[in-house]
Amino acid sequence: MSNLALGGKKKKPLMSRLWDQKYLFLLMVPGVIWVLVICYAPMTGLYMAFTNYRPSQNGYFYDLFNAKFVGLQWFQYFFSKDFGMIMRNTLATSLLTLLFSFPAPIILAVMLNELKNVRLKKFIQTASYLPYFISWVIAANIFLTFLAGGGIVNDVLMSLGLIKERILFFQHGPYFWWIIAIANTWKGIGYNAIIYLSAISGIDEQLYEAASIDGASRVKRIWHITLPTIRPTIATLLILAVGGILSTGFEQQLLMGNNAILNYSDVLDTYAYRYGLAKGMYSYGTAVGLFKSIVSFILVMSANKITAKLNDSALF
């Protein structure tokens, strides 16, 4: 019975079925090659984290596999020295970013959905989407100029009488975490709102009409129809956000930070860059990067599990 398909025919052997679908598998070949070459092959470099790698004329693979094996030496050094400060900065910046940038696009998308004036809606959507296309070099300069001692933000606060002395935003470490969180949110709000808007556009209009007939107010319609319907999208983006919690940014810290606040601005990515690339300590930089990847992987898996239990929907 088990060998019979639904139509009562005998199921073909595996090899035969594979052969039947050979053209489909052939179509997959470029994709598989791409994944192997671009995603998996470079992972051999992770071995560098356990060696004392030094490039030479002998070539990359020769140097990599003939480098002195040092075990967990680089990890031990990292955990014994800068781990605490770097993790504190990374998590503080990330959590603050998550606090702002996760709900902000949902709120924006819901508000845009409620707007009846199409031209205004399109204008807000475009204006909020625009910062996503601005490079961090320009964005960082905007923030540096606006938040400078003689910048427009200080001018406004002074003229409103909210402060008596100008605030030197880039001289105080904790301010920096907030600046990065706000900058990240400002850049990403429009882009993420589009994802939610597309999810909202799939909601059946009849649900809203029925709710209106039943006397549901606009807030109740949002609460009981819009938000529950886009919950899978919210869950997916939350999983991705949690998975990327250690990727709190790179260019923004590098461009807006300075030595006076280095102990607040240095995060995992900038730290790995400073040591790994700028200083040529490839093995140490790789070790820091590998640590970040492992933690990110664990976080994604955990967030996926938790979301699956809470929502009956998960990413994978």
């Binding site: 004392n52 030496q73 050094y77 800068d82 040591y275 200083k279 040529g280 300590m281």
Partner: peptide, 12 residues
């Protein structure tokens, strides 16, 4: 210089 514990300590 290079990828040594001393170089890391110096940078630290």
């Amino acid at each position: 210089a290079g990828s040594t514990i001393e170089a890391l300590m110096y940078q630290g």
